[in-house]
Design a binder for these strands. Structure first.
Lengths: 238, 238
DNA sequence: AATAATTGCGTTTATGCACCACATTCGCCC
DNA sequence: GGGCGAATGTGGTGCATAAACGCAATTATT
């Protein structure tokens, strides 16, 4: 008997800012099944492209978002996960900087919505992780898996930086970790740890427009130093 | 244009003993492409089964090995990874106990061979990871990925136990970790750590047939206690 | 009975983490 | 301008845990 399995790629894209916490990028479906339901951006895999290229293309056309980090998450293949028949979903997991969060994600097909407008027929949006609606297919489960991966991975790989602007105050990084790990972190020990690792580059600039209090120094992630440490077997751990 | 992507499942099955170190289960291909080359056990995904069920079935029919732990590893989808056309390989990652390593893996496929027969033209075997030949397709790369996963995972999840007999001396576990992490571990601290976690059950039995030296007490993994600790947020770390 | 090998348990030293104290630098208000 | 609130930068201390090391106990071998 001949094999008949179709393949889609899906993307769980996380964004973060200190006001809203963690958000996920969603698109509204325009065709059945699950028409008008929110879903993960994604679509059919093409016959000749690498899977990762497919995801990036779908993301670009469906949301116009430029991603900062992308890795494969998991392949979902339950026989009944799609009413149309047997579908594999190769899910990816991505991160964007806060600047991408501020701009409204918009399909490139339609002309741009004015920034900040909230129209009911919009087709892509950021949704806070705590406020996720019921999504199409098994997409809630996919996000759950991506969240678990994110929470585990930031503890031993420096991917948290990918969720912040390239220059950031340490307190921002700390708040990010507190949000994701759901536990308080000692400000001073956190700073001391990062300083002793030497994977931060201090800048002369200072944070502008702090709401109140002393403006913080800005830092950026020292990728060179990190890969050097990695080779020496010293690992990042929070 | 219509999508035409076929799907296979592949399994990287690891076995361990203190004499040979880590080994991988291989099967010899009997059809082109790569005919007579060694490859990972696997095959076409069926239309209506969950992927994991497919892998287990293929493993049973191709090698007769009973596996002890199985999880999804990664989906390989480079457009040129199979000369026959576009193929996705959903790779799984599994572990067996040493008893499975001692018995020669044998295909149960054809009715031509009686079940227990061990013919010289056998098509499945264990291969030490240091002695891997060039395999069919991208299977060397798949094993590389599985190895990385194994080495990382044993550090924070108790899957090392799945590579040992259900009752084992602590020194066996320690040697396993030394082999996989490729660094020496202090015997006494290792033992203390496991004892303080309380995830080992001590047995009255002692190791039989030690080559020399004092026979060691036998222990087994306390799954109940481990899942209890897990719920309390205390995690396993070596 | 001496020796080698390996296990089991204890002691000391170093490191990391929770917690405290205080100076510094900004905005804001009087 | 000076005091105040709020947040950042930097130093330090005590405790718990991990790393490093010592040594006796148990077995096979000779």
């Amino acid at each position: 008997m001949h094999q008949h399995i179709r393949v889609t790629v899906e993307a769980v894209i996380f964004g973060y800012n200190s006001r809203d916490g963690l958000s996920v990028l969603l698109v509204k479906r325009t065709i059945p099944p699950y028409i008008f339901k929110w879903a993960l951006p994604g679509g059919f895999a093409s016959n000749d492209e690498p899977l990762e290229v497919c995801v990036k293309r779908e993301l670009r056309t469906e949301t116009g978002i430029s991603i900062n980090y992308l890795e494969q998450l998991y392949t979902f293949g339950a026989p009944d996960r799609d009413p149309r028949g047997r579908f594999l979903a190769v899910a990816y997991f991505g991160l964007v900087r806060p600047t991408a969060l501020q701009t409204k994600p918009k399909p490139v097909i339609t002309s741009a919505f004015p920034l900040g407008s909230v129209s009911d027929d919009r087709e892509a949006r950021w949704c806070k992780i705590q406020e996720l609606p019921q999504l199409a297919f098994d997409h809630n489960m996919i996000i759950e898996k991506a969240l678990t991966r994110l929470r585990n991975k930031i503890r031993y790989e420096p991917i948290g930086f990918e969720l912040l602007d390239s220059k950031f105050p340490i307190s921002e990084l700390e708040k990010l970790y507190e949000t994701l790990l759901a536990r308080p972190i000692d400000r001073r020990n956190f700073q001391k740890k990062l300083n002793s690792l030497g994977i931060l580059i201090a800048h002369d600039e200072k944070q502008k427009a702090a709401l109140q209090g002393r403006p913080a120094k800005l830092f950026s992630f020292n990728e060179q130093e990190y890969s050097k440490l990695r080779e020496e077997g010293i690992l990042f751990e929070i």
